[in-house]
Design a binder for these strands. Structure first.
Lengths: 198, 198, 198, 198
DNA sequence: CATGAATGAGTATTCATTCAT
DNA sequence: TATGAATGAATACTCATTCAT
């Protein structure tokens, strides 16, 4: 009584995604070398061997987790946002609002941000600048909004890229808090916006 | 002809401190599990065995590094600062100035901050709130200044403790940047202060 | 398809016992510090890691080996023997016969005796007289037989406990011979009995 | 103010002997692999390096300890004893008496015996029969006395060499007791002699 | 000569990976 | 396919030995 091939594929994809998502959370908390396959598989609730059915190695799993993060839809939202015919101030309101909503609603958002920023730091350490397109795009679009705001007089002066980096750095900070702290308190929209707005 | 006991103690203290300080930098960069004793000892420029002459285990070394950090003199400066008969705004200027100067001049400041904040996150995870006297004191003194500023109308509204946490979070952020990024750009005083000042 | 839990437990128990028994032989020959995990695992015919699946450390393995020895069934035989309504002389014949048969037939008997006596010596060194219930019981039961023999006039005079200690000491001696000597010659029943019998 | 060369040599010899004797005791208790140079030197009350001024290596020290044992004067006594025009029974009395007196008076006797027997066992294990002349001679002379006693009818029947081995085995047993046990009780002459005498 | 701090080869232990079930 | 027991390469740690003082 063989299962239909489609159903089979479906089941495989489901398990693969489960591993991918849970691993992301775990890697975000403990880092690559802080993560043991034995702990991770117990955390996911599967056998150690199962991970190796879907991934070649711990390293490949980590890479796939990073790839998954890069495919996230957040940039699209932001891209769309920065293209709208709105004053920068409002765009920043919307952006901040979106970020805070994602923190609240999307369980994996903190992990995505944390892991991503760690990747960027890691790459900076190695001196290689082929950094993740995701991060760069996110920063680029944010910088665009900042520049618009500076022209409109609503955003503080200074290098737009540096300010974008600052803004997302703080988002990273609160990702860490959410990931590590049992009863964390999320940042207020006003406090986050103040980084950019006059 | 035995070595003189004083000279012996001297040599031992010197080596112990050397290991402690160099390890701090290394742990701050690579974390506990990312640090191999073989790499660490090569980095310090000593034999692997030497570490075990002074410390029981990798774990004990890590704990001693944390203890050392807690004995740092930075709080004293801040304590002194918060006691001066100055408007809060000026205190915050001074504080920010001091922080940025330490980043520039004290090679181990970034490591101290990074490791310390990681300790706090770690402890929050475990739910135990003990041991972080250093961090807590730093936060408490900053919160005091913030409250003063709120009374004086120069500091933004909101929970003083939360704002202090935010301020030092950003300092942590730039510690990471300094530790990981080859050609990092330090935050400007203005950008850092804006977290607190209206 | 997970392995059935029962079969799993079975496999685990089997391996644990295998390690325990083989280690006993090895420790008896080479002592604790003379035993390298790498050699021991090769001797058992398993990987080094496997030992650590079942035991925390070399020390714990050694302790478990000692515990196992203490659970051995030899005392029961002796206990039974000393309770029979027989003249002491015959009991001593039977005891000696049993001991020599065990040497011949039970491959692990020499190891049990050797390791056990070493434990007793070790404990005497530390001055702590606990834990040696096995040894003590063995001695106590032998002493009982000796006292009976002294009343019956078939056993030499002197402290019964000291004579029991002497008797088992000689058994230990020949355990060592069996363990260490390639072509050892076992003691004769008559020579062993002469320690006790007139 | 150079010391006279003779005095110098004298001092050297003194230290060398001290190390040799103390090491013998230590090796007898803990075995070769159970003996750490750091522990041994602390036990002797000298620096670790000092041992290496007098001996090439731990192994050489062990070998020198064994050589020293072999040069001991005990055989001479025994040789002399076995040559006397006495009945074997009396020779055995004398021998036993001497052994017990040595236990009591010569602090290093137990160590000499223990280490020596361990050497013999060790060699038997390796199958190499180039065994220490000391042991063999001791056994040979004892066997000679036994044979004489068997002719005279005072000694039990059986292989003289095996009985000699038995006798010295028991001496070894009580050496261990003395070395390891805090409040040991030495064997009685009668109990020891009974191994040989009818 | 005597010392003990420093060393690295050797040993204990961990953990990513394999594989029989 | 999913499992977890078994494995050995990688890593932590120990201890005989060296060497500057």
């Amino acid at each position: 009584m063989p299962k239909s091939p489609e159903r089979c594929k479906e089941i495989r994809d489901e398990m693969r995604n489960k591993i991918l998502h849970e691993s992301m959370q775990y890697f975000a908390r403990f880092g690559f070398s802080g993560t043991k396959i034995s702990d991770l598989s117990r955390y996911i609730g599967i056998g150690q061997g199962t991970i190796y059915v879907y991934f070649e190695s711990k390293e490949e799993l980590f890479l796939e987790v990073q790839k998954m993060i890069n495919r996230e839809k957040d940039i699209k939202q932001l891209k769309f946002l920065s293209g709208l015919p709105l004053p920068a101030k409002q765009k920043i309101h919307k952006l901040t609002e979106t970020v805070l909503k994602l923190f609240e609603e999307d369980d994996s958002f903190a992990g995505v941000i944390a892991l991503n920023t760690q990747m960027v730091l890691e790459q900076d350490r190695n001196g290689c600048a082929d950094a993740t397109t995701y991060q760069l795009e996110l920063y680029k679009y944010t910088a665009k909004i900042i520049e618009q705001g500076q022209r409109e007089g609503s955003v503080v002066e200074g290098s737009a890229m540096k300010l974008a980096d600052y803004y997302w750095g703080v988002v990273y900070l609160y990702s860490l808090k959410k990931l590590f702290t049992a009863r964390y308190e999320m940042i207020d929209a006003g406090d986050l916006e103040r980084i950019l707005l006059k």
